[in-house]
Amino acid sequence: MTATRVPVAAPDEPPPGPHVPRVVVFACNWCSYTAADLAGTTRLRMPAGFTVLRVMCSGRVDPLYILEALALGADAVLVTGCHPGDCHYSSGNVQARRRVDFVKQILDRLGLSGRLEMHHVSAAEAPRFQQLMTSAVERIERLGPSPLSAGCPVLPPNKRDAFCTVLRHIAGQLSVTPPEGTSIEEALVTEGFGEPEYDVDRCIGCGACAASCPQHNIEIVDADGTRTISRFHSRCVRCKTCEESCPVDALRVVPRFDLAAFLSEERRPALELPLVCCARCGQPVAPRRQIAQLGDAMNDHAVPREDTMLCAACQRRAHAAAMRRHMTAHRQAGGQT
């Protein structure tokens, strides 16, 4: 979303008469959109009341779009994508399924259950597409029109704020109030979708999170005596491996939203920590904090000191040289090896 967001006007009042469901279908260009096309060319009888919006991948559907569609008067939203394993972009449909599940949770808490679904439809499955649309429209006829009055507030450019704004708007209309002392987004979004957050004071910068992240979401760069830990926030799959691996409990996956990013390679610096460099070669060894907290667990062992800290390679070299000196001295003293 760019900074200049155009406010979307509420659709015109529906004509009086029996309620015609308004179902918004986000259809993937490579499968379900083609299936819809095929359903048309094979002249399958389709129900009235659904609108197909083509997206290049179901993974493109942001939770914000779903909420916005509902706020703007849609009775239901369907997201259709390729079958698992068939995604044109390898994993977009899986991402979409995850996002839909996330929004479903929120809608259930808001009392809007049954108004969001995700289906996997291949390009050849025109009859299935027809059947899905028919059943969706029938279900909406049973459920009745959306309790929300069409209209959406002007959204701020920041995606997270935009999501919260829509959420607050919908919750306000349904008179859902959060428990005392919490915001509506905290009450509604409890689990699942979130982002890793560092406790800047606790993190020792050991890099366990980066080493264990299956998505290579966390990046560590050592330069100019500082270790910078940054995240590529769109890669995160919220598996919480980083949270489990953190030895000092400085990392938590917080229930917040950071949704489909527009720049997948957008780097978000999380924190910077000063490094201790090798006393011999000057290569960075470890963050100062990690070395400082070594003493706690070491019992009676010699704790490495910051000023004489060697990198592993120099440590090996130093040991080998010491052994060599020892051997030479031993031989010079007349000893045999």
Binding site: G207, A208, S245, L294, M298, A302, A312, Q315, R316
Partner: peptide, 17 residues
């Protein structure tokens, strides 16, 4: 978890991440 603490404390610099 690959934190490299063992590598820091090893007097011989043997463990490596």
């Amino acid at each position: 978890i690959g934190c490299g603490t063992c590598s820091l404390v090893c007097p011989f610099g043997v463990p490596r991440v």
